[in-house]
Design a protein around this nucleic acid. Structure first.
Length: 421
RNA sequence: GGAGAGAUGACCGAGCGGCUGAAGGUGCACGCCUGGAAAGCGUGUGUACGGGCAACUGUACCGAGGGUUCAAAUCCCUCUCUCUCCGCCA
């Protein structure tokens, strides 16, 4: 969420930011409530002060054995008034809360401005789109050909948008998980975490999935738990309500988890293959950074994710999301897009974002140095990478004319074979 | 699932109706001491919100939410979490 003081003193900046995003929020109502709240607060605090002072008087009078019944009676009335005002303040608080929790983050000034993804800016391209002197097959066809991906039986076991990995397919998926975690922990300095795959409502609110996007989540029946849509949620919330030591920043975590997404509103899109599933695997990178250098940390994090694609020798490009395409909680996002030969296009395989203090304020994650007050940390995260889409990219980019699939050099020791045929 | 114990500041830990924002300790910061360090000594050290240019000041906060009371960390109720024992179990 945004800083209420900032909203109060810079309403124009906030309005412009919301406009760039294409979000509509009734900010004036919020500001009006804020004013009302402060009035009521002053009133009730005066009464409470009176109560505190008089209660002490009553105490000393009683100790001296004197009569205090006048004061007691007066305080009875004051107590009633306090109760009424407290309720009014709470009502206003709730209204303000529901408004500010629905306000998205303010986009960073470096973003291209525009209403949709066509305004995204390509920053750089690595490698060349893979060339074939035959018609490249789709990864779902390759998967079924080698009997390593089974979509039909998964539909029988569960439903649409689920996959059974089999044999070397399962092994490829597992190899990618291990490979990515190994690179990030040994070469990039991240500490591995294996978090819970379900979280409570508070955690979902902390990172910004709730209250606005409940329909995108799977909720576990008879509990208040949700299946995580990304490891970002449990890992970011590790330090919820904590004050970190400034010296420990930045804190770097990487985590493997399955991800569960309802994909509401995606009917008919990407219905074939591994691209859009209700359950997929992902290795996530999460950082807790000092506000002074969080944008440098974003560059590094993006580079860390890119490194995986480079080691796998998969062609990709880096794109800065435009103001209208960026996620609710993010201030700036780089998408990494991998080349998929069969669809003849780049597809998102990682999304690396700086949330600044937006999530930290919601989840109450702060740091403190030797001097000075606690401040909110900046949180960042990025996929490093989405495993299912990586598998798809490998199948399509590494396919041979006879349908066999070469295994990228760095994966061969994990796979135990050099080719799937 | 059954029985019991507990949740207090960065951390440990006292307090169990009013004089407690909270003893004591640890940690941390600053100063003294030292050639330098350790030890020792001294001083300081909560958060949020409101008001004030500021010094400062008001309110709230002792797991969360309700209640009793003139007054609650302290009494009552509900919930959450942690620990111990029993049962069950990968």
């Amino acid at each position: 969420m945004l800083d209420i003081k900032f909203v109060r003193s810079n309403p124009q900046i906030v309005k412009e930011a919301l406009e760039k995003r294409g979000a509509s929020i009734n900010l004036d109502e919020f500001l009006e409530l804020d004013e009302q709240r402060r009035e009521k607060l002053a009133e009730v605090e005066n009464l409470k002060n009176r109560r505190n002072v008089v209660s002490k008087e009553i105490g000393s009078l009683k100790r001296e054995g004197k009569d205090a019944s006048d004061l007691v009676e007066e305080m009875g009335q004051v107590g009633e008034n306090i109760k009424i005002l407290d309720n009014q303040v709470r009502e206003i608080d709730e209204k303000m809360e529901s408004i500010i929790m629905a306000i998205p983050n303010i986009p960073h000034e470096s973003l291209p401005i525009g209403p949709d993804e066509s305004f995204n800016r390509v920053e750089r391209t690595w490698g060349e789109p893979t060339k074939f002197d035959f018609e490249p097959k789709a990864h779902w066809d390759l998967g079924e050909m080698h009997d390593i991906l089974d979509f039909e039986r998964a539909a029988k076991v569960t439903g649409a948008r689920f996959t059974i990995y089999k044999g070397l397919g399962a092994r490829l998926e597992r190899s990618l998980i291990s490979f990515m975690l190994d690179v990030h922990t040994t070469e990039h300095g991240y500490t591995e975490v294996l978090p819970p795959f379900m979280v409570n409502r508070q955690s979902m609110t902390g990172t910004g999935q709730l209250p606005k996007f409940e329909e995108d989540l799977f909720k576990v029946n008879n509990t208040d738990y949700f299946l995580i849509p990304t490891a970002e949620v449990p890992v970011t919330n590790i330090y919820k309500d904590e004050i970190l030591n400034e010296k420990d920043l930045p804190i770097l975590h990487c985590a493997y988890s399955p991800c569960f997404r309802a994909e509401a509103g995606a009917y008919g899109r990407d219905t074939r293959g591994l691209i859009r599933q209700h359950q997929f695997n992902k290795v996530e990178l999460v950082k807790f950074a000092h506000p002074e250098n969080s944008y440098e940390e974003l560059e590094k994090l993006t580079n860390n994710a890119e490194k995986i694609l480079q080691l796998l020798e998969l062609p990709y490009r880096v794109v800065t999301l435009a103001t209208g395409d960026i996620g609710f909680s993010a201030a700036k996002t780089y998408d990494l897009e991998v080349w998929l030969p069969n669809s003849n296009t780049y597809r998102e395989i990682s999304s690396c974002s700086n949330f600044e203090d937006f999530q930290a304020r919601r989840a109450n994650i702060r740091f403190k140095g030797d001097k000075g007050k606690p401040q909110f940390v900046h949180t960042l995260n990025g996929s490093g990478l989405a495993i299912g889409r990586t598998t798809a990219a490998i199948l399509e980019n590494y396919q041979q004319e006879d349908g066999s699939i070469k295994i990228p050099k760095v994966l061969q020791k994990y796979m135990g074979v050099e080719v799937i045929k």
